[in-house]
């Protein structure tokens, strides 16, 4: 690790004041940042510990919906009675990720801002445009089994690794941030970005801005949902492909549908137009297959990850079936029904 100085923020304004200094990072649970610093992938000169800030609440919002504090742990969020009851899709996605120990330490703000798991991003001996702008992308033409099949650019084909964010995307969550220039609210679907020609920018957060909370809208999907995560082992592994589905189904007709994909792009992948086409369709395999085909019509493999296109197609159909039947994927026994 490259030496750095450390300060514990005792108020939001203190944190923002400290965040004005160059090359500082906020540290929350530390489960991603400390790892990146050990590898010298990230070398901040000063850390601002935000764990003492009053940002840990999970509370009902006026007019419905729930506010998730940025410093609430992933575990406390997933097991919160209101989340289990109203947003089981979110609880399920969080519990599909990482390990119990990591979820205890990891925070909601940190989860949103975690960096890619691209092997080259972690390996400072290799070129990587995200880590070292302009140096090139080693994953294109390299080892790219875990890389993107949608929305990639010629500069970067990395994926966003979060499970939680895939569910937040499907639930139309809104991210609240504060910073030197004041407060902003950003729909989660616009929070993460595609790599384009600025792959070092994972999301739209500006330097010195801090995530304070994440709002879940009043609309819940308590019955017809599923989070299906496919990976190289049954637990404690990042998604190769994941699918978050939230449906409203009436007499076998789809009334409302949300589908987000994880592990396939630089951000949780949603297409609102294609989703819209599901409304009024029968909840059956023909509908699901046609939907999966449209959602993946622009998908391109990079060689080692070509298999992800078929895997995603099958996973989308399965997850839609699970959601429509009200039999969501279990994150305990992992049998896919």
């Amino acid at each position: 690790m490259t030496p750095f100085s450390f300060v514990r923020a005792d108020s939001l304004s203190h944190a923002i004041q400290e965040g004005r200094n160059p090359n500082t990072r906020f540290i929350a649970g530390g489960t991603n940042l400390v790892d990146l610093m050990k590898q010298n992938v990230d070398r901040p000169s000063r850390l601002i510990d935000i764990s003492a800030l009053d940002l840990g609440a999970i509370a009902e919002r006026d007019g419905g919906g729930i506010s998730l504090g940025a410093m609430a742990s992933n575990a406390d969020t997933a097991y919160h009675p209101l989340i289990k009851e109203r947003y089981p899709l979110l609880a399920s996605a969080i519990l599909a990720g990482a390990s119990p120990q990591l979820r205890n330490a990891a925070t909601n703000g940190g989860n949103l801002n975690q960096r890619t798991r691209c092997y080259y991003f972690y390996d400072t001996a290799t070129p990587c445009n995200k880590r070292e702008p302009g140096s090139g992308c080693s994953a294109i033409g390299g080892v790219n089994r875990i890389h993107a099949i949608l929305g990639a650019s010629n500069d970067c084909i990395a994926t966003h690794p979060s499970d939680m964010c895939v569910a937040l995307s499907a639930l139309d969550a809104v991210v609240h941030v504060t910073g030197p220039d004041g407060d902003r609210s950003i729909p989660l679907i616009d929070y993460h970005r595609l790599p384009g020609n600025e792959p070092w920018r994972d999301n739209v957060l500006e330097d010195g801005e801090l995530v304070t909370s994440i709002d879940l809208p009043a609309e819940t999907f308590p019955t017809n949902y599923s989070y299906l995560k496919l990976r190289d082992r049954l637990s404690y592994a990042f998604a190769l492909v994941s699918v978050a589905v939230a449906l409203q189904v009436d007499a076998s007709t789809i009334q409302h549908a949300r589908v987000a994909l994880g592990g396939v792009a630089h951000k949780p992948w949603r297409d609102l137009d294609i989703e819209h086409s599901l409304i009024g369709k029968p909840a059956d395999d023909a509908t699901y297959r046609a939907f999966a085909d449209s959602l993946l019509s622009q998908a391109v493999g990079q060689g080692a990850n070509d298999f992800k296109i078929d895997l995603a197609r099958a996973a989308i159909v399965r997850a839609l079936r699970q959601a429509a039947a009200g039999t969501p994927q279990s994150q305990s026994n992992k049998r896919i029904i």
């Binding site: 450390f6 514990r8 540290i27 649970g29 530390g30 489960t31 400390v34 790892d35 850390l47 510990d49 764990s51 575990a75 119990p100 120990q101 990591l102 205890n104 330490a105």
Partner: peptide, 15 residues
């Protein structure tokens, strides 16, 4: 009382 991975926790954050 909570289990965590001590390798990813900076000691100064656990005052």
């Amino acid at each position: 009382g909570k289990r965590i991975n001590s390798c990813l926790a900076l000691a100064v954050t656990k005052d």
